[in-house]
Design a protein around this nucleic acid. Structure first.
Lengths: 329, 329
DNA sequence: CTGAAAGCGCTAACAC
DNA sequence: GTGTTAGCGCTTTCAG
């Protein structure tokens, strides 16, 4: 792999000159003759020179790399993609560090490679507390660890309210909330509760998952069906699809039997039977936003608290107007 | 960020000593007193020293990083995860380079950061030919570019045969293959054709997708339904789910109307209505395998041609025995 | 066992 | 406008 030194020799100039030319700073900082500049550029090109960013990182103390630590669930790809693409725009590279049960090991890897920023993407709750305090002495800008706003900025509650309001707006009264395990699901359930309270409707939450074997899920679904609700708000799409699934098995059509709304807009929700009404989380945008926050932290040292995203209601065919109560229109 | 030099000073030894101790080579290469060794280790620890891998990369000429270039579809996360986790076992890090329409730019980024290996993960067909030949002069081990076996080692054809054979085995005769756009889908369709030929059944391929608007898809589905097949083999799960979807809309149940098999085992296929019989591609394993191949290339310079993976048939509820022809029980 | 010295490829003052 | 010099933090001979 050829170096600046060789270019300097071949072109008959000094390495400084080469450096300045190659960094495109030969117009402002130093005045290098156009003739020399072109010659340098030409030889660099003919020799197939490619700058060694690693060295630049060492010298400048800036690696232009940010580390993403995660378990890399399928669903996270969009977040990562958003982060990677946004980073690329600013000349930053993203490196992936697997979590594999030890957050401190992962963190140390990031430090060893001198990542300028760290994005702990969707850490399991319990790991939040396991982070060695000494890590923070390095002062590396990070998002997703406990000491900052934590997680990604997405307003689960308000987003869930969108779905709940949609169901109420369709004229449904007996609306069941399905699932509430985990802190995120609880925020969604809370959104549901608020909407129900606003409309003086009685909230009913079915909680099947947690130790959550398939069997318990089965029972919960059976109970829901027996309850004959007008609509069911599922705290996540897979849960909703599971419900659709069991209804299908009983030859019960949706939304005829009752409406079903999900949450998350996972890729296949569009192809569910019927296509699922749900709330989208802007994963890609979130990833971009996280990079922006980290970049801001790197540049200015101050945390920009962005307005949390609010999901969008995705209207599809699993929800429909209620006619039972002589529903409006 | 503290350096070896500082440790040397604090511990009252030379930087060489520190280097050797910290690299755990003070037993074999040099005989450093246990006492000194522990002292060095202790001061390093108390000072919060973290080795700068970047410098090590520069000095040794080995970055211990491999670059993954991809468009990062949701579906690829498992492959990437497999690659990342396998890499971690060998002390390698994975960095992500977005494709964004210019393969050569992406490749150059990888070279600039001196990636030891490159994994072009599922490049669009057309990009294969756009790779600047000069790239190969760098001699960086790579998987997924045209000059090697290409793509990941997965036998699409044989895997597709699993699904086709399953359908034939259930007693179906009139089996339609749905979709064949793209080189991968064609390999799957070929698997279908072979099985049909083996059993002296007439192959029928419906090709809807390509310029593939939703409308064309719609028409294709209508034609399939009109054709009254015994079973339909869809070249990928989303296509299969789309089909299920349209059948649902017509109140046509599966597998009563006809059996449906997909391909890919995407995460939600399990929750389709009905749960989809499909063929799994071992994405995670593939990712691990790719890293192994790259590592092998790095270490020995020789391409290990692993036995291509063959998918597994995932039996679910969208396929059932045919009774029309007095089918075998 | 330990330390001096050279070097990896590049940046950045500061003279010429 | 151009070249000299020092240095980034680490590895690695090679004398003591």
């Amino acid at each position: 792999m050829i170096s600046m030194k060789e270019i300097a020799n071949r072109a008959g100039v000094s390495r400084t000159t080469v450096s300045f030319v190659l960094n495109g700073r030969y117009k402002q900082d130093m005045k290098i003759s156009d003739e020399v500049a072109t010659r340098v550029l030409a030889t660099a090109d003919s020799l197939g020179y490619v700058k060694n960013e690693l060295v630049q990182s060492v010298v400048t103390g800036k690696s232009r790399v940010i580390a993403v630590i995660s378990e890399f669930h399928e669903i996270m790809m969009s977040v990562v993609k958003g982060c990677v693409e946004e980073a690329a725009k600013y000349g930053y590279l993203v490196e992936l560090i697997p979590l594999e049960e030890d957050i401190n090991k992962a963190l140390m890897t990031a430090v060893k490679y001198r990542a300028e920023g760290i994005f702990a993407c969707d850490l399991p709750d319990k790991m939040m507390d396991e982070v060695d305090p000494k890590f923070f002495t390095f002062g590396i800008p990070s998002i997703g660890l406990k000491h900052n706003t934590g997680r990604m900025s997405f307003n689960q509650m308000k987003s869930a309210m969108l779905a709940a309001e949609h169901l109420v707006g369709l004229g449904h009264r007996k609306i069941i909330c399905f699932g509430m395990d985990g802190s995120i699901a609880q925020q969604r359930a809370e959104g549901y509760r608020r909407v129900m309270a606003e409309h003086r409707l009685e909230p009913v939450v079915f909680q099947p998952e947690p130790p959550g074997s398939l069997k318990e899920l089965e029972e919960a679904v059976a109970r829901i069906i027996k309850a004959r609700p007008d609509a069911v708000f599922c705290v996540n799409d897979p849960l909703a699809m599971h419900l659709l699934n069991r209804l299908y098995k009983r030859r019960l059509f949706v939304p005829d039997t009752f409406s079903v709304a999900g949450f998350g807009n996972v890729s296949m929700s569009e192809l569910a039977s019927p296509p699922l009404t749900t709330v989208s989380e802007p994963y890609y945008e979130t990833g971009r936003c996280v990079f922006q926050r980290i970049l801001n932290l790197i540049k200015t040292g101050s945390e920009s608290a962005p307005e949390p995203f609010i999901g969008k209601l995705i209207l599809r065919e699993s929800t429909a107007k209620n006619t039972k109560y002589g529903g409006k229109k």
